[in-house]
Design a protein around this nucleic acid. Sequence first.
DNA 1: CGAGAAGTTGAGCGGCATCAATTGTAGTGG
DNA 2: CCACTACAATTGATGCCGCTCAACTTCTCG
Lengths: 242, 242
Amino acid sequence: MDDIVKTLARISIFKNTPPPLLQNIAKQAHASKHKKGKVLFIHGDKAQNYYIIKNGHVKLFRETLDGTQATIDVLTKGDIFAHTLVLEEETYPYSAEIVQPGTIISLPLSDLREAIHTHNDLAVAMLQTVAHQYHQRERELEHRSTQTTSQRIGCFLLRQFQNQQNDSLAINLPYDKMLLAARLGMQPETFSRALSKLKKETGIRTEGTWIYLETLDKLSSYACPACSGRFPCADLAQKRKE
Amino acid sequence: MDDIVKTLARISIFKNTPPPLLQNIAKQAHASKHKKGKVLFIHGDKAQNYYIIKNGHVKLFRETLDGTQATIDVLTKGDIFAHTLVLEEETYPYSAEIVQPGTIISLPLSDLREAIHTHNDLAVAMLQTVAHQYHQRERELEHRSTQTTSQRIGCFLLRQFQNQQNDSLAINLPYDKMLLAARLGMQPETFSRALSKLKKETGIRTEGTWIYLETLDKLSSYACPACSGRFPCADLAQKRKE
DNA sequence: CGAGAAGTTGAGCGGCATCAATTGTAGTGG
DNA sequence: CCACTACAATTGATGCCGCTCAACTTCTCG
């Protein structure tokens, strides 16, 4: 219980939520451990809960009528999803599946809806979060049309690198390559080929799920020209130099 | 002045805003008519205003470091933009250019920020709007990877059709084909070819900027299989039958 | 009526998908 | 512990979709 409150407190939308309210919210929380392959909900189900990942990985995806599957995102520890439905739709606009076993906390959307109507700070925090995610989607959309597959992988590595706290130049891929390929909107075969190309072009080395790079510059100067800059990628090389 | 209030009242985020507050907001509004080609702001400028389109068209876009331009969206009468920066960034994440002359209302982001902190209803309405736009982006991203160019045009026509109030089976393209091609993420040449293909496959007819279709079914059964359904497109044919 | 842009059409090319075969790897049960 | 199986990952061959470059036609507007 306290455990749940602690997890919630770290979520961006609850960052400034007063502890009493947080505990109230946590009362309706339901944490459960899931195996790989477990489907939390399916596109079209009535939307009742939103979710927070305590650990493990969750894939959000849709299937088109002709059977192909489009991966929307792969989420990790500390991520929240389906919260955007709080005021909007009555059904989930995508499906969610556990791809790496872990504990997921589910909370009723109705409670959240009530909370944002009564607690302005929460509504504002949530607006900030969703606006941020909106901008990320815009960037993603840009990447899909301007970057080649190799650049897209390079860009992903840079962001991955940016997220990790230590200064090591080694990156461990957060999940397997098939999933990563889907996340980046390409086929596994294409991913494999694009990665070898990236190795040739930028001199990175790989070893299983580990990626080693000597300099950031080479990678960013390869991937970032296809980006609109100003954003993380461009600043990254600079930050590191300081 | 009253004019501006009336325009504002029709914007989704101000739908339930009490008139006094709305008039207060309108006080800082600044409406001005712009010619085609006028750039309202550039990617990277300090973000100070958000905008509402009274009439005309505005293109949002970014340029990558290697010079290519990515069109993010083309907006019309009644649309709002840059409002997502209210809590977020300090600079605009894209550029905005007038592509169809018209009147644009600009309002200070700082006022909006203050207003959402003091008026919960406004914060909630805005959250709803942004969440909705977020879902639209998700759909857009899906379309880019699952639909062919012809299907993407078909899908656009269906949505265009859905937006118009009358029951006529004629659609007038909202802006010229070059721009539409950019908006749909393809080259003008590709657009032209894709449209002829669409004509062959679905039996639609064209005449200048006008598109005539006999049935919706043919169009939606051509374009929608590559969609994840449930969403507008799928329901559309049904709705019309009633 | 002429200039310049929008739009169309053709030829050629490249990137990514698809299909297929092979190798690598992790998990299972005897 | 090893053999077996299933799936991840790589590599090759082939094809298609959309981009690029270029020429030509149509439209728009001064």
